[in-house]
Design a protein around this nucleic acid. Structure first.
Lengths: 226, 226
DNA sequence: TTAATTTGTAATATTTCTGTAACATTAAGA
DNA sequence: TCTTAATGTTACAGAAATATTACAAATTAA
């Protein structure tokens, strides 16, 4: 679970509860207590999913929603609406305005978590997948194991995260800076050359002779999984 | 992202921040601290987009804007206005005077970047497109790959950038100076004839026998993709 | 606490790319 | 046709980027 979730909700207690539990599941969470500010921060945060309260002090949830849908970069951001009981009639309106799912308060965290995962599974499967698979490579996030060709491979923690990162976006080329930012915990200072060494270690571990190289070097750009 | 962006803004710190980040994304950036000078330099620079501060020491943003719109060569130059909080009422006036979008300070770079790309996507899609296609030639910016006729072609970094450049504006003829300015990183000093050599290398890589030459030499003017 | 594993870096080796110069060819006007 | 300027082609040395290795410090497991 490496996804980012943003919450716009005016009850601080709900935010706290949800945030705590989501973080426990490995999501990165940020939040805002009102609509206008939320919109700005959300666009900075670039979440993979938005939890949006229906009733906000300044804007209505629908307004927020419409604003997001107008923005090309967030046109497809999955949104789950949080509605209070009795607002049920509005649900249909909510879905029309481009909401992906809704849940009525009060809800259990399990219920919410299930819906979040269901929505993410549609929009961004790799975020919630327990297993990341690419060709004959398989990474099991639950058991923290990696297999190639059914045979288990032993990886150090950093190599594991590195491979997990490549597997969430195979083929795409990443610069060393991008890799650093995501694979290494909060802006630690690490030489950019260090990545080369870890790439080498990862390569050594996952490569099988007579099988093609899995990590492609793109000179002056970075690396990718192919 | 091979586009050119010009900034007119009197706070040097903002220019610095924005310029640095835009360059990291591959844009070529130039700037000016006031309106009159800015107008002159802008017309020399020929940007694909202008970031324009609303309040300038000499001219108002609107004046600059009107001046630009009067100039046939820049009638359609996309403009994003930078406004301070509280000037919101003026926004409509801004949009009326031919601004394509606006953003209120303080803004995050992500927010700005998103708007820039949205505006460019409308005015000049090739600058921000993930894939550039011309006839049987395809360049994938995400995976950093080039294909002709579905077959992959291996290119060195400079040849890749060179082709990327031609593909954002096929058919148009570029002088060696223009090519140098955009394809080579920050005004390095390179013999103009060096370009010929790279053109040759590019030609050698992308040409397939029995298929027509893709790069046209325009004697005494430069090269173009046809 | 000790032993084993993992990490980051620096030093070195290797590969690939770049720019230039020298020479060859072509195009166009005299 | 000859001349000249512009472009094409080639080869190569130095530069730049990446790969590899070894090792000491840090972290984790035993």
């Amino acid at each position: 679970m490496k996804g980012k979730i943003f919450i716009i909700e005016d009850e601080a207690s709900i935010i706290q509860l949800v945030q705590l539990n989501l973080e426990k599941e490995g999501f990165i969470v940020a939040s805002s207590l009102n609509g206008n500010e939320g919109l700005k921060e959300l666009k900075k945060f670039e979440p993979n999913l938005l939890l949006l309260d229906w009733m906000l002090p300044d804007l209505s949830g629908i307004d927020v929603c419409k604003n997001i849908r107008k923005d090309n970069n967030f046109k497809n951001l999955p949104i789950i609406m949080l509605t209070a009981k009795g607002e049920e009639e509005d649900k249909i309106k909510g879905l029309e305005s481009g909401v992906d799912d809704y849940i009525t308060k009060p809800f259990s965290f399990n219920e919410l978590s299930a819906r979040i995962k269901a929505v993410l599974r549609r929009s961004d499967p790799n975020i919630v997948a327990d297993e990341l698979i690419f060709e004959d490579l398989k990474l099991d996030r639950i058991e923290k194991r990696v297999f190639r060709d059914e045979k288990e491979i032993q990886l150090g923690p950093t190599e594991f995260r590195l491979l997990e990162f490549f597997l969430t976006n195979p083929k795409r080329v990443y610069s060393r800076d991008q890799i650093l930012e995501i694979v290494w915990p909060n802006n630690v200072n690490v030489e950019s050359r260090t990545i080369d060494v870890h790439i080498r270690r990862l390569r050594q571990s996952i490569n099988i002779k007579d099988k093609k190289e899995l990590i492609r070097t793109v000179r002056s750009s970075g690396y990718s999984l192919v």
